[in-house]
Design a protein around this nucleic acid. Structure first.
Lengths: 252, 252
DNA sequence: GACCTCGGTTGCGTATGTTGCAACGACTGT
DNA sequence: ACAGTCGTTGCAACATACGCAACCGAGGTC
């Protein structure tokens, strides 16, 4: 809609990939370098971009500031924190908190596991719905009509041999997740990792977010993973309580 | 330089303050609401902004993503982490890591203290140079000419009775800091808190950042604060070593 | 149920802001 | 000294983003 803004935002992504020279950036977004220069200057004034010497650009501090401000304003993140941190400390596995946004999953918090296998995820990163445990939980919590709409509209990129490939399979899986109250990602997203996820609920029983635990397959087989479900659910229940949820139906 | 971009970035700040209505935002940056709408749409496409229902706007996930990507790329943050986390755990006081940017201090990491008094600081937030211990350390590390240039060019807002008010006082203080190897903020920034800070150095002995410890005055008097200096310096030395610094002059 | 207000959305013509170009200057390495 | 990068500036042409005013749609009030 707004050309220069559009270009500037694209620019930020290019800069994030690696600190670049002016012409590289110009090439990447397909405009003249003088245009890039002007955009960068404006971004710099607002501290969205920082120049490192001449010849290098990096993301600036306004980014951190706004982002942290925004993260602080996500209430579930704060209210779920103690329970998830404890879960992470107790099990040593990587714990994620995620929410639904525009046909994808967004990670809003992450507690790094103790084992050396690091996952390719990060707070703010997005992931598909159909191949993540958190995605399944979040969509399963929606009314049937919306589920189907989403199942129909999203893409089904095949990331591993186990990835769900069709809307109908996805819907069937969602039904199962809704029934069980938790979801499994059996190496459907990353080859060597499987996950379990469960919902975090708010005062009216609505699902605010999903929390997951990710475990490398070499560390724990499928049985072992499922054995962690009660542990995870204890944590999500605690997180739900901190978010205003009450056991027996509607709160208040 | 670029009007629409400039407006859009200002807009982000307004949104960060609190999720607003269209007209509020329009008023705030002084343009027609249809203009705001178009900017918001572009920001939304890039996930910089999220709509909550209709009628509410919040910062979006692209922000978190880019910010975390950027934070990860700040090497000193990562390499200083273990030492600072340990310092924080050992003493229970709030620990900050900060660097110099454009006439101000920018916090690039924070370890929350255990006592209930919370500081008004956040990763990404900026603070003045003349009334923070980290600011003094960072400027003191610069060559004399640059020190004076900075001392001359910055403002000296008076935030507490103890705040340094003039360039010459600031320069004298910097000289002292350079000599001692650490800096003190004796309630010059916030009335009830005093801090000590020391530099974190890289392979060539250059100062990469400054680490500080902040303590409420009710918890520890001035003497008690100074008694923590060795502890802080042990941590910054450890952080420096992890950043490539070697005891005897030039590294490698 | 009609009226009103408030917030969001759209189409349009215009002027303004943004763009690409080409030339310049600073710096590097050969 | 020269060629090669890379960043920076002024200018003229044009596309773009702007403000306006009118149109919806939802909630609230009488």
């Amino acid at each position: 809609m707004s050309q220069s803004l559009d270009r500037a935002l694209t620019l930020l992504n290019s800069i994030a990939k690696d600190a670049c020279t002016l012409d590289d950036l110009a090439d990447e977004i397909g405009v003249h370098k003088s245009t890039v220069l002007r955009l960068l200057r404006t971004l710099e004034q607002h501290h969205f971009v920082r120049r490192e010497g001449t010849r290098y650009y990096r993301l600036g501090s306004a980014m951190f500031d706004l982002a942290n401000q925004a993260l602080d304003s996500i209430d579930v993140r704060r209210s779920a924190q103690p329970a998830l941190a404890a879960l992470n400390a107790r099990t040593g596995h990587t714990v994620h908190l995620a929410s639904y946004d525009d046909g994808e999953v967004v990670y809003i918090d992450k507690y790094e596991g103790r084992h050396s296998v690091r996952m390719y995820s990060r707070v703010g990163k997005r992931a598909p719905l159909h191949c993540t445990a958190v995605g399944k939980v979040l969509v399963a919590a929606m009314p049937p009509a919306r589920r189907e709409e989403i199942a129909r509209s999203i893409e089904y990129p095949v990331l591993t041999p186990n990835t769900i490939k069709t809307p109908s399979d996805f819907l069937a899986e969602l039904e199962r997740v809704g029934r069980l109250g938790y979801a499994v990602d059996n190496a459907e997203h990353e080859d060597f990792i499987h996950c379990i996820a469960a919902p975090v609920r708010g005062a009216d029983g609505e699902v605010l977010a999903a929390a997951s635990m990710s475990v490398p397959k070499v560390l724990l087989d499928y049985e072992g993973l499922l054995a962690l479900v009660p542990d995870l659910r204890a944590a999500t229940t605690e997180a739900s309580v901190h978010s205003g949820w009450t056991e027996n139906g509607k709160g208040h």
